[in-house]
Amino acid sequence: MSVVEGIKENPVEEFLRTDRLPHVWCSGCGIGTTVNCFARAVKECGIPLNDLAIVSGIGCTGRVAGYLRLDSFHTTHGRAIAFATGLHLANPELKVVVYSGDGDLVGIGGNHFIHAARRNLDITVILINNFTYAMTGGQVTPTAPLDSIETTTPYGVFEQNFNLPHLAASCGAVYVARWTAYHVMQVKKAMVEALNKKGFSFIEIIAPCPTIYLRRNRLGSAIDELKYYKEHSVIQHGADTRDVGIDIRRPEKIIVGKFVDIEKPDYLTAMNEHLGEVLGDKYVRWGE
């Protein structure tokens, strides 16, 4: 077996459009790392790949859909969740995963994010948070901590940022976790849990953007950043999400873990139950 042949044993290989590699992500970028975790999580869940659909928006993480050999949709900026809503509701047998970045999902797409969580739509949202609009060269995103240097905040960020686990939880997500690109095993496990969860599941993965965010903020290399995650992450499962915000560029601790894991009827279950109750036999049940 040649060296490259051996690579084909990697569980991620059957997920990849290998004819499109190498990908566009920079050296040390954390996005690819999370894709390794995703492939292993899907395999562990036993989800047939033909039943899995992936939807991305625009941006670096938005390119994930393009590299995954699944039914994959690279949609418009911020609207991956809205597209996923239609995909899921029209065919509830599909396992629909939205994979996109912080600027895409909670910047331009914030409205769809909060409403999908509120509706408890049965989809999984994986958000790679690198604190910047990297594809366009590093502008400030709604997750960028105070003092971050971005191309549109050359004197540092002074506006408050989103605390994403709290945002998701307060809007109604039934599963909320945060990890970093250092925590590969935990990320995989969280993805398994999220994929198995009925309802709106959300994972924030903090990941290094060495070319843009780290460089501009003089935070070192991707390796330095992963080491920082390793040394400063504090696992607090069940933490009150109000307390997990990342408000400065280099906080003493990044709280990670599984914060929310609750049961609540998802959108379609609620729809079928409610309309069934109100309309009785006249109701044509959907997706069951």
């Binding site: 590699l21 992500w25 996005i31």
Partner: peptide, 15 residues
């Protein structure tokens, strides 16, 4: 297998 889990470029696989 950690090398293959971390590799952002799907360029290494350990098992």
């Amino acid at each position: 297998g950690l090398c293959g889990m971390y590799c952002p470029d799907f360029a290494i696989y350990g098992f």
